[in-house]
Design a protein around this nucleic acid. Structure first.
Lengths: 224, 224
DNA sequence: ACCTGAACACCGTTCAAGT
DNA sequence: ACCTGAACACCGTTCAAGT
């Protein structure tokens, strides 16, 4: 058995200069999938569409990825790479948090279907996410926060960010009262006043809420 | 043609005492669907499963509902009914907001798959949601808030609530560092300190964040 | 008006067979 | 080791045919 399957040690199995037309791997598949998502949104992302874009049959993908869910994690990993966490190394905590949150929310507003997945996925599967948490936690640490208050603060901020990213995908006229116009006077006049400011409602809510939650956290924090 | 199909005006088409075994309607279908969800979660909710639970063929449902998406809206409407917005009529704004947010988040933690839908759905399709907004807006009004600041505050709170509801469905060990243990010292020690408190991480984050965002909003508010 | 049963156009995934 | 093609077990939805 050994003798039959053994090949000369170190001998190339294929001659150089005879590359395979396609060599699938994680990187290639993930990039192809992300490309499809960017081009046509998550509804166009199917195992078939990924396979087709790689010139391969759908079943071939399963030699490299366990499930569509795992492929989604790969995409998440790439997307997460776009979140800038270096700000915590150069800016005071409050400013760093604000910049971080703005880019974080902006990126996931464009990848909203990943949100329900991420919120539930173990971070151990995502080194980029772990790196991010480390940098954010270090920022809180440097600002003198009590250890036990850091994780709740991060999770609260992330919840707000993900919720706001979902909200950012809502249609602009989501609050139009429709047939019930006139039956909700308080809300309708508040809505009118907000509209008069000319600001995008989702963006205004995000910035207002972000400053409120950051400010509130800072106030509550018992600096060690 | 008229003569053949015409029946005596006002005559009952069926004798009394001979009820149809099933008379489908919106209420019946929505309740059956919700029952399935409560029993087995959203992954068990298919048009086939709903039809089966009603003793009817799947295609029969399409005489009463346009799509599964519409059925999901019906469920949302029922679920939304569980959110208590009357607190705004009896309690000061800050306490009312806190109670409202806690029940709101609790309910949608158990209906997380509805969240990406709701965040994007026009409120005109959901009278209960409209009622809720009216009561919340009235609460802000009564507290003397400037009109233009009410909607952003509500949307910010809702984003935090939805994000936290998603987060509440995460596994308890979601932050376990796995193979990268030791590589994220700041985060890991913060995590350890939080764990030592014995509090559920998601719940702690929600209450911390909720008080922070409410407190921060109140502070920012320019009372008219 | 409303139901059935067959059919359609998809999904993600598995697996024997090839190289 | 990795690919193909056929197949499986589903989805949501449509539609002609019945009553």
């Amino acid at each position: 058995m050994n003798q039959e399957s053994a090949a000369p040690a170190g001998a190339p199995r294929r001659r150089a200069g005879r590359p395979r037309s396609v060599v699938l791997d994680r990187e290639l598949i993930a990039r192809a999938a992300l490309k499809l998502v960017v081009a046509g949104g998550y509804s166009t992302l199917t195992m078939s569409s990924v396979a087709k874009s790689l010139g391969v049959s759908p079943s071939a993908l399963y030699n490299h990825v366990e499930s569509k869910q795992e492929l989604m994690q790969w995409i998440q990993e790439i997307v997460m790479d776009g979140v800038d966490s270096t700000v915590f190394e150069t800016l005071p905590l409050v400013e760093a948090l604000e910049k971080w949150a703005v880019t974080y929310r902006g990126i996931f507003a464009e990848h909203a279907p990943l949100i329900p997945l991420i919120a539930v996925l173990p971070v151990s599967g995502s080194p980029r996410t772990q790196e991010m948490y480390e940098k954010v936690a270090a920022g809180f640490n440097r600002a003198g926060w009590k250890q036990a208050e850091i994780v709740p603060a991060i999770v609260a901020l992330e919840s707000f960010i993900f919720g706001s990213a979902l909200d950012a995908t809502a249609p602009l006229d989501i609050f139009d009262p429709g047939a019930n116009a006139g039956k909700m006077p308080s809300f309708e006049s508040a809505l009118e006043a907000q509209r008069a400011t000319g600001r995008n409602s989702a963006d205004a809510a995000f910035m207002t809420g972000l400053r409120a939650i950051i400010g509130g956290l800072m106030e509550q924090a018992e600096i060690a």
